[in-house]
């Protein structure tokens, strides 16, 4: 890997300042970025580590009943600390990668990367969460903008993510066992105002909502109400699955998620 300067700030303000330099990039847990840099697919001049910023670590529920997760919180910590208040999200975090990856990888890093088969984008979009940065708040519906694309500006840091806690929710992941990403995954969340269904590992455009299922499940939150599989047009095709296979997985996993959510 090409060399770079590693900066380890202790505050968001110092991190933002360090990121204003040329070709500087934030470093979360590095579980995607470090392998990418080893392949020389990324070669920043400066990496600004989020790992030492205490104000960006932790899980809490605020006075309005919204779960707030610091951007540098690891998957392992979310799996442990969110389990009482938002078990479906904790379970999602506990299925990412493997134990050693979960001890380093962070929610902010995962969302900023927006891998089309990652788990957190599904949980975040499915929950209708709000991404909080050093500069603004971005609704999940506006945040994910396609393959590895997000609404983040250069040098903008995800400081926390706010999750409204649904009445019932569940994440179903068809594991791709070599990468331990989702081959396809579906997050279903039922709120008083309606049901949200977010799909990862299916579309060439990355995480997205399945509106037909949302409408059907908002009327009747039952596995029997899941509509026919969505169109396979523009779904991912690779050696692990055809678009048609993934379309069917979306339907099946949605049904399983609804059944498991109760």
């Amino acid at each position: 890997m090409h060399n770079f300067e590693l900066v380890t700030p202790n505050s968001v303000a110092d991190a933002v300042s360090a990121l204003s330099g040329e070709d500087a990039q934030p470093l979360g847990g590095g579980q995607t970025l470090i392998p990418t840099m080893k392949q020389r697919l990324a070669a920043p001049a400066t990496l600004v580590s989020m790992g030492g910023i205490a104000e960006m670590v932790g899980v809490c529920v605020d006075d309005d009943g919204v779960m707030v997760i610091g951007g540098a919180t690891t998957h392992a910590q979310v799996a442990a600390d969110a389990s009482a208040s938002y078990p479906a999200l904790a379970a999602l975090a506990g299925q990412i990668g493997d134990p050693a990856v979960r001890n380093r990888g962070t929610i902010g890093g995962s969302l900023a990367n927006n891998d089309p088969a990652a788990c957190y984008p599904a949980g975040t979009l499915g929950s209708g969460a709000t991404i909080v940065t050093n500069a603004r708040e971005i609704a999940a519906d506006d945040f994910f903008q396609g393959l590895f694309e997000t609404a983040l500006d250069e040098g903008e840091i995800i400081t926390s993510v706010k999750f409204p806690i649904p009445e019932a929710a569940n994440y179903q992941k068809m594991l791709q066992p070599a990468s331990r990403f989702a081959l396809t995954g579906v997050f279903v969340a039922s709120f008083a105002g309606g049901v949200r269904v977010a799909v990862t590992g299916a579309s060439n455009e990355g995480v997205h909502r399945w509106s037909a299922a949302e409408a059907a499940l908002s009327a009747n939150f039952s596995a029997d109400a899941v509509p026919e599989a969505p169109s396979a047009d523009d779904l991912i095709s690779d050696l692990h699955g055809t678009p048609e296979y993934r379309a069917n997985l979306v339907k099946v996993l949605t049904g399983r998620a609804v059944a498991a959510a109760g």
Binding site: L6, T8, G30, Q31, I34, P35, S49, A100, V101, N103
Partner: peptide, 24 residues
């Protein structure tokens, strides 16, 4: 980051030492 042969504990937690910078 796949094989886990490099796992060590950092502050009691298992991590892949090939996927963490020494300065961290």
């Amino acid at each position: 980051s796949q094989c886990g042969a490099c796992v060590v504990h950092v502050n009691g937690q298992a991590v892949k030492s090939c996927t963490m910078f020494a300065a961290e």
